[in-house]
């Protein structure tokens, strides 16, 4: 594995690289995650973004919240646009000018943008792809995505007589990314900013394609108190429902251990309206048990305990 050096970084200003005045909802986890990623990466980057909340709340013309060069094109092509940026820098002899970071939400990454992302990973571009995972299509009004968790209520996976919400398990994107044989895959959570910083810096020190997925609570879609954004995110990790780990060259090399005894998933579920239906009937207990089993499997699979 080789590393490349950037041109001398500009003096870091005290202001963040994601400027205030953006129109993210109160307590938005994605705005926080993007701020942390940019803070860790520094100014010598070029970022792309898929259509979605982040793009909408930061780029309402004539304003922009981005203090770094930014391009948004479409929903499904953030990874392909980033590929174009990266090869252009190379072709123009400007590869030391900037590192390239592609961004997308969970829908733009794991669903509609999966093909373009796969192409980017397989071609070996020197790009860090960051997926801000808020577990549904929030920008269009909280519809189910491939990263929506099991039994979660969204506007297209409502609970009802015949439904407990989303019938399917969350797609295992980190493994899909890792299966491309890329050098670095990581998951993270807005609850742990230092971890995000370390992972972004580490990823950017590695040449080649990197994939990072950051759990980013959405108070609007999760029907959680905006004040509890960090609490909710922490509980997702502590229950084992959102394992935080690093994979290097296909192998899990580092995990964030959970505190023992393990926190039951109820603690995480009960503070979010998107799971409220599970607490309304005795049968819901069985569903919660299924979710506990998902957490337990994660704890075992990644050795979180």
């Amino acid at each position: 594995m080789t590393t490349t050096t950037l041109a001398a970084p500009k003096e870091q200003s005290c202001q963040t690289l994601l400027a205030s005045g953006h129109t993210a909802c109160t307590g938005c986890g994605e705005a926080l995650a993007a701020k942390l990623v940019l803070g860790a990466a520094g100014p010598n980057i070029i970022v792309t973004d898929a259509t979605g909340c982040l793009e909408v709340f930061t780029t309402r013309f004539p304003q922009s919240s981005w203090e770094v060069p930014f391009i948004h094109s479409l929903f499904e092509n953030s990874a392909a646009v980033a590929s174009g940026v990266e090869v252009a820098l190379k072709a123009l002899g400007r590869q030391n000018e900037a590192k390239v970071i592609a961004q997308g939400g969970d829908g733009g990454t794991a669903d509609i943008g999966l093909q373009a992302l796969s192409g980017m990973l397989e071609r070996g571009h020197d790009i860090l792809y960051v997926c801000y995972d808020n577990e549904a299509y929030m920008n269009t009004g909280v519809q189910r995505s491939g990263l929506t968790p099991f039994d979660c209520m969204t506007t297209t996976s409502p609970c009802g007589e015949l439904s407990w919400g989303n019938k399917h398990n969350k797609k295992d994107m980190p493994s899909i990314a890792a299966a491309h044989g890329i050098p670095y895959v990581a998951t993270a959570s807005v609850a742990f900013p230092k971890d995000i910083e370390n992972k972004v810096k580490k990823a950017l020190s590695i040449t080649g394609p990197k994939y990072m997925q950051i759990h980013s609570p959405c108070p609007l879609g999760w029907r959680s108190n905006p004040q509890l954004t960090i609490k909710v995110a922490k509980l997702a990790v502590q229950t084992g429902l959102y394992p935080v780990f690093e994979m290097e060259n296909g192998k899990v090399t580092k995990v964030r251990k959970i505190t023992t005894p393990k926190t039951p998933v109820e603690e995480y579920l009960k503070i979010q309206g998107r799971f409220a239906h599970l607490f309304k009937s005795p049968k819901g207990k069985e569903e919660i048990q299924k979710i506990q089993e998902i957490a337990d499997r994660n704890i075992e699979k990644y050795g979180l305990a």
Binding site: T48, A80, V85, V87, G119
Partner: peptide, 21 residues
Amino acid sequence: VNVESEHSAASVVLGSSATGA
């Protein structure tokens, strides 16, 4: 750049063109 679809072919040249290529 050998891409996985025409959608990405056009997206790659879009990104490159915006970078000054």
